[in-house]
Design a protein around this nucleic acid. Structure first.
Length: 327
DNA sequence: GTCATTTGACCATA
DNA sequence: TATGGTCAAATGAC
């Protein structure tokens, strides 16, 4: 009975991914159709933004589904997104009072150690607000470490299935130094505010962020949540509730109009072909290993495109070579 | 009463 | 088997 259900769920998941891939393709074609219907071939900003947002949603959803699928080979795919319901509650935080202490036997099959691929390490002298709301779920004294490690998860884990977690550990006392390890990426819709981003941009970006150069006019990068904003040449939009993920490079005395600092703890998804130009692509946190991201690591557009393609293939289970369109 | 944190126990992985 | 990551009851703050 249960295995039948699991089988069906896996089958459904595959169909879901297939349908999402189709949706992605249709969106791509829709954009082309809109462009062709225009006299000069240029989409207005609103249309471009909408298409971009739809494409970003597809990328994000496929990423979530595939993470679930690959991490839980023998389990129900949704388990990875909505963690195992131990005693029938919808979440461990369901404070209905009906919660019973689960025995060790009840927890069998519930993986305690996750296999999240994307890791980003950030070392700072202060514990600056990173713009997301976290909830602490554990603390552990680590062997040979003078300070305990603190474990946090995104507060939207259970209501939105956001899998982002972070670990914070003091690594030095005087001067204070903290190591924050971000794992997974935010799939929740609670975005950092502009003020929070500005606050965060004052922290140590030299070691934790990506410097993207836009010197080549045809090369563009976007963030899945907000990538359309970069189509404008604005460096920073400061409106509340309209976060921009592009920051002036504070580490340089002279700021080039084509240089931007991007937050390191998020994924970057590939830009798509637009206005006859194939955009370059970028991604952070791309490897299974801890990834110290520095400005030096993303100066090669060519490498970025390759890395991005590999990462997107891995996340979405898509072979880009088989797609009817180019990324 | 509600929600976040603490902390000991459990469990997967190396 | 040791270690690190997560769970969940207990506790505290509001």
């Amino acid at each position: 009975m249960e295995s039948q259900w699991q089988e069906n769920s896996l089958s459904d998941l595959k169909m879901l991914i297939k349908e999402l891939n189709c949706g992605q393709e249709f969106t791509h074609k829709l954009r082309d159709v809109i462009k062709q219907s225009l006299v000069n071939g240029d989409m207005n900003m609103l249309a471009e933004n909408l298409v971009g947002q739809i494409m970003g949603s597809f990328c994000k959803t496929l990423s979530i589904l595939n993470t679930s699928n690959s991490n839980e080979d023998s389990q129900i795919p949704m388990v990875a997104v909505f963690p195992c319901p131990k005693d029938g509650r919808t979440s461990p935080e369901d404070s209905t009072g009906s919660c019973k202490k689960s025995s060790a036997k009840d927890r069998i099959g519930c993986n305690k150690k996750r296999k999240i691929s994307a890791k980003t390490v950030k070392e700072t002298s202060t514990l600056a607000d990173d713009g997301h709301v976290w909830r602490k779920y554990g603390q552990k004294q680590i062997l040979d470490a003078p300070y305990p490690r603190h474990y946090y998860r995104c507060t939207n884990k259970f209501d939105q299935g956001c899998e982002a977690i972070k670990q914070v550990q003091r690594i030095q006392d005087n001067p204070p130094q903290f190591r924050t390890i971000y794992q997974g990426h935010h799939t929740c819709t609670t975005y950092p505010t502009a003020s929070q981003i500005l606050l965060d941009s004052s922290t140590d970006y030299e070691n934790s962020s990506i410097l993207l150069s836009f010197n080549t006019k045809d090369n563009h990068y976007y963030h899945p949540y907000n990538f359309p904003t970069f189509f404008s040449t604005k460096k920073e939009t400061k409106e509340e509730n309209s976060p921009s993920f592009f920051y002036p490079n504070n580490n340089q005395n002279q700021i080039s109009t084509s240089d931007y600092i991007l937050p390191a703890n998020d994924y970057w998804t590939p830009a798509t072909e637009t206005s006859g130009n194939v955009m370059a692509t970028a991604l952070s946190s791309a490897s299974d290993n801890v990834d110290y991201i520095s400005s030096e690591s993303v100066t090669s557009t060519h490498n970025l495109e390759m890395e991005m393609e590999m990462e997107m293939e891995m996340m979405a289970g898509i072979d880009f070579d088989d797609l009817p369109f180019e990324f």
